[in-house]
Computed example of a mutant assay.
Amino acid sequence: MNQIATGTFIARKRKELNLTQAQLAERLGISNKSVSKWERGQCMPDYAIVNELCDVLGITVSELLDGEENERENLRMYDNDQMIEMLARIQRLESQRITIIAIALIVTGIGLLTLSPLFSGSDLTDFTSGALFGIGSGVIVIGVFLATRIIFSYLINS
């Protein structure tokens, strides 16, 4: 599944229907920024609206995920519901991966903050202590940011 190919395909099909990004977004009940992100290959459509997107564009889920029109005679191994379930699993796994990264960053940051007071006495060790404190603080902030983003996306999609 190539996000850029899928995004280019969405843009082409949208333009064939003489729809703007805003019009497509309105039909799907989402923001036009989401459509723009899809078309630039920055992200994939959420599994919850894939069927509706395919209906609007007049394509199959398989074509959407492939990023190109398929020959109608091709034998498909999966039906649309199975493909949407696979897309949902992929999106859940990506969310879990980011959650694990966030937790690892927070734990690493706490570890660095714990180590920072152990270095003191000379100029070099004071510098090392300050560097560990600063890096630890930054890592924690990044971890908290990622965790917050996951929590908000979970709350919005629930």
Rank of each mutant, 00 (worst) to 15 (best):
V139T: 15
Q82I: 08
G67S: 06
I103T: 04
P117K: 04
A102C: 10
A22K: 15
F127E: 12
C43D: 03
E26A: 12
N51F: 06
E68N: 11
L17C: 08
F119D: 02
A147D: 01
P117A: 09
N80F: 03
R12N: 12
E63K: 06
V50I: 13
V144E: 12
V107W: 01
A102E: 03
F119R: 05
Q21V: 00
V35E: 11
E69D: 14
A22M: 05
C54P: 04
L115S: 14
L57A: 07
G111Q: 04
G29H: 02
S95I: 07
L64M: 12
F119M: 07
I150A: 01
T108H: 01
P45K: 02
L17E: 03
S120I: 08
A147I: 05
L132I: 12
I156L: 09
R89E: 15
I100N: 15
V50P: 00
I90A: 14
T128S: 09
G109P: 05
L105W: 11
V61C: 08
M83Y: 02
I110R: 06
I150L: 00
N51M: 06
L112F: 15
I140Y: 04
K13N: 06
E73Y: 07
S34V: 01
G67L: 11
D123G: 11
L64I: 12
D81I: 14
Q21L: 00
Q96S: 02
W38M: 07
